[in-house]
Nucleic acid binder design. Structure first.
Length: 211
DNA sequence: CATAGGATCGCCT
DNA sequence: GGCGATCCTATGT
């Protein structure tokens, strides 16, 4: 591993804490690392969305709904929740909070950090660097994430969240906005539960809303 | 740059 | 049978 990619993995149980909004902000600037068939790829996270479980109408597990799909969300924090969206996109979430409280954080965008050539290969040669992992479906595709990895712990070999020596992101560098694509959620669609690195080219959708 | 429409299928009612 | 926590392309401004 090259020196510039030295990093410290975060243990899965770190995500058992209950403050999902804080975690969604905290994830910005951290590394999401995946390994498929021994090949390492990683992005630096630039955009996330929090889904706050039973009381959040935008959450799949609103009202403690139990279905085959939502089963994963009831696992303790630190597991991967991967589901198929629109029949073709594999969306990647990190389950948070204690077992039985179905919170999750959707990872929506990141900046390529490790294994960029492989991510380019997975996405196609025409895709510009800043779009390789811009948008939740694209991010999963670049990192080789698919529903076969659903319910696995967020630990080696498949996944890791890690910190490295990157500069600390001050609050003024972070924006928030309503979540994307949840108009079905009534008034909860207006809650500012989307977080992003302000003005970062990899962020999908609005880059400057909020503070 | 903004908007529109089609792709495509597992999950839920 | 209807519809998504989306993406890509095409068309118009």
């Amino acid at each position: 591993m090259p020196l510039e990619h030295t990093y410290t993995p975060v243990p899965p149980h770190f995500f058992e804490q209950e403050d999902t909004l804080w975690l969604a902000r905290w994830l910005l600037g951290k590394l999401l690392i995946t390994r498929q068939e021994g090949l390492l790829t990683a992005v630096r996270i630039t955009e996330t969305e929090a889904y706050l479980g039973a009381t959040d109408r935008a959450c799949h597990a609103y009202g403690y709904r139990h279905t085959a799909r939502t089963r994963t969300m009831y696992l303790p924090g630190g597991h991967a929740y991967v589901y198929l969206c629109y029949g073709m996109h594999h969306l990647f979430n990190i389950v948070t909070h204690r077992a039985g409280e179905p919170h999750a954080i959707l990872l929506r965008a990141g900046e390529p950090a490790i294994g960029t050539a492989l991510m380019q290969q997975r996405r196609g040669p025409q895709v510009p660097l800043h779009k390789l992992a811009s948008g939740p479906g694209s991010l999963s595709k670049a990192l080789g994430i698919h529903t076969g990895l659903n319910a696995l712990p967020l630990a080696a070999p498949h996944f890791e969240i890690a910190e490295d020596a990157a500069p600390y992101l001050p609050d003024t560098a972070i924006g928030s906005s309503p979540r994307i694509g949840v108009s079905y959620a009534g008034t909860d669609a207006l809650l500012p539960y989307r977080f992003f690195v302000k003005n970062h080219p990899t962020v999908s959708g609005p880059k400057t809303w909020g503070t």
